[in-house]
Simulated scan of single mutants.
Amino acid sequence: MPTIRFLTSGTDVDFPDGEDVNLLRVALRNKCGVPFKCATGLCGTDRVRIVDGAEHLSPPKRRERELLGDLLDEGVRLACQTYVSGPVSLYWDPDQKSIDEDSRAGKRLLAEWLDAEDGQ
């Protein structure tokens, strides 16, 4: 089973071999602490830096390329736009501010993401 290592929170999450999983959805389901706000690739709140395993990530989507630009070359990705197919290690700035998950908008967005399937 491949493992996603969330270095900032010290959490490791295994997922079934042969599956592509959304990085943000895995983080939310396993309470890994990745910050998020819009979860659509527009705000950039869920920026993560890939330490190892970049070859196991989906190619950057248009929104990621537009928002991150040269940061992509430095290993920065948006968790909401990134699918993982093998072992990956990543971290994020612990000072990044997330949506208030107890707010009405936070609860709605969280429910939407947790209820959805992973498929691309």
Results as ranks from 00 to 15, higher is better:
39 A>F: 03
40 T>Y: 02
43 C>A: 06
43 C>M: 07
44 G>M: 09
47 R>W: 03
49 R>T: 15
49 R>H: 15
50 I>K: 11
50 I>C: 10
51 V>W: 12
52 D>K: 15
53 G>R: 11
54 A>F: 11
55 E>K: 14
55 E>F: 05
56 H>E: 10
57 L>M: 10
57 L>Y: 08
57 L>C: 10
59 P>K: 12
60 P>Q: 03
60 P>T: 03
61 K>G: 14
62 R>Q: 14
62 R>T: 13
63 R>W: 05
64 E>S: 03
64 E>T: 01
64 E>R: 07
66 E>T: 13
68 L>A: 02
68 L>H: 04
69 G>F: 08
69 G>V: 01
69 G>M: 01
69 G>T: 05
70 D>I: 10
70 D>Q: 13
71 L>E: 14
73 D>K: 14
76 V>H: 13
77 R>S: 04
77 R>I: 06
79 A>Y: 06
80 C>E: 01
80 C>T: 06
83 Y>T: 10
84 V>C: 07
84 V>R: 02
84 V>A: 02
87 P>W: 06
88 V>M: 00
90 L>R: 04
91 Y>D: 15
91 Y>H: 14
92 W>G: 00
92 W>F: 08
92 W>T: 03
92 W>Y: 04
92 W>I: 01
92 W>H: 03
95 D>F: 10
96 Q>K: 09
96 Q>P: 08
